[in-house]
């Protein structure tokens, strides 16, 4: 990969355009192979029997052997985990969007003259510098004491740990949005709540999309926090936890393990296929322009 990169930058001005384009495509196709290779292995292995894999790991399956999938779905409550993941992600993201924008709006419109808001801004910003591992150990005991080591607790933690980054992004973004419109609305007798809901939120939609995408992906895939908070009972697991447990319980049968990887990936891949345009634009709109 490195070599190709070198080659493509080495090309002198005189080189023909087509050759350069061809090299770029070769480079990209090699990258594509590197990205797709693990998927290829995962899919073919999931459809093979152990002896088929032992004979030739790389070959295409002779027939579509479905017992691995049957076993995975039988041994684990897959649909419960899927539902848990969806519920946790949706609820947490809704609250993150709602609460952090409210907070960021208040901060950005007041931090120039209100000591409280300025202090709050730096107080919340401080969280960016604190790695989760620094609070993880006491947090486990603390949530346990509060009887919050369940899905509700996990959602509260997701909101908490998303706050710093979201506030940082939002405050900077909202400050770049002129406040004239709101002022006018306020003069017209609109309440602050109304101005926030009707004027500010639509204006900051690009950044909302960014925060939505970042957090939805993060929460859907979160492992460590779920491991610490939800690991008491399989009924509350999310998909990453199911994945990790399945692997530790059944990996001496790696065909089944690969089937479980595939099953864990499928929902998010389907969602991605439908909303990829929004994911990519959501990520970039707010992030790049701020």
């Amino acid at each position: 990969m490195e070599q190709i990169t070198k080659n493509s930058t080495k090309i002198k001005k005189g080189t023909s355009y087509t050759l350069r384009t061809a090299l770029i495509y070769i480079f990209l196709i090699i990258g594509l192979i590197i990205i797709l290779f693990p998927f290829y292995i995962t899919i073919i292995t999931a459809f093979k029997t152990t002896s088929e894999s032992a004979a030739n790991f790389f070959a295409f399956p002779k027939s579509f052997y479905l017992d691995n999938f049957k076993a995975v779905l039988q041994k684990a409550n897959y649909f419960t985990y899927f539902f848990n993941s969806v519920a946790i992600t949706v609820v947490a993201v809704v609250f993150i969007l709602l609460l952090t924008t409210m907070c960021a709006y208040a901060i950005s419109r007041n931090m120039n003259h209100s000591k409280y808001h300025k202090a709050i801004y730096y107080y919340l910003l401080f969280g960016i510098f604190v790695p989760f591992q620094a609070v993880m150990v006491p947090l486990v005991k603390y949530t346990g004491d509060l009887r919050l080591n369940n899905q509700t607790g996990l959602v509260l933690l997701h909101i908490t740990f998303a706050a710093s980054q979201a506030i940082f992004l939002l405050v900077n973004y909202i400050r770049s949005v002129p406040s004239d419109l709101e002022s006018a609305a306020l003069i017209d007798g609109c309440t602050i709540q109304g101005a926030y809901w009707r004027i500010v939120l639509p204006l900051i939609r690009p950044m909302l999309m960014t925060i939505l995408v970042l957090n939805a992906m993060w929460i859907w895939n979160d492992f460590l926090m779920s491991l610490l908070i939800l690991n008491k009972s399989p009924n509350t697991w999310t998909i990453p936890l199911f994945q990790y447990n399945f692997k530790s319980q059944y990996t001496f049968d790696y065909n089944m393990a690969f089937a479980s990887y595939l099953v864990a990936m499928v929902p998010i891949m389907i969602i991605y296929a439908f909303v990829q345009r929004y994911i990519v634009s959501g990520l970039t709109q707010g992030a790049v322009k701020s």
Partner: peptide
């Protein structure tokens, strides 16, 4: 260990 810490 975590459950022991929170008396559970």
């Amino acid at each position: 260990m975590a459950r022991a810490a929170s008396d559970d």
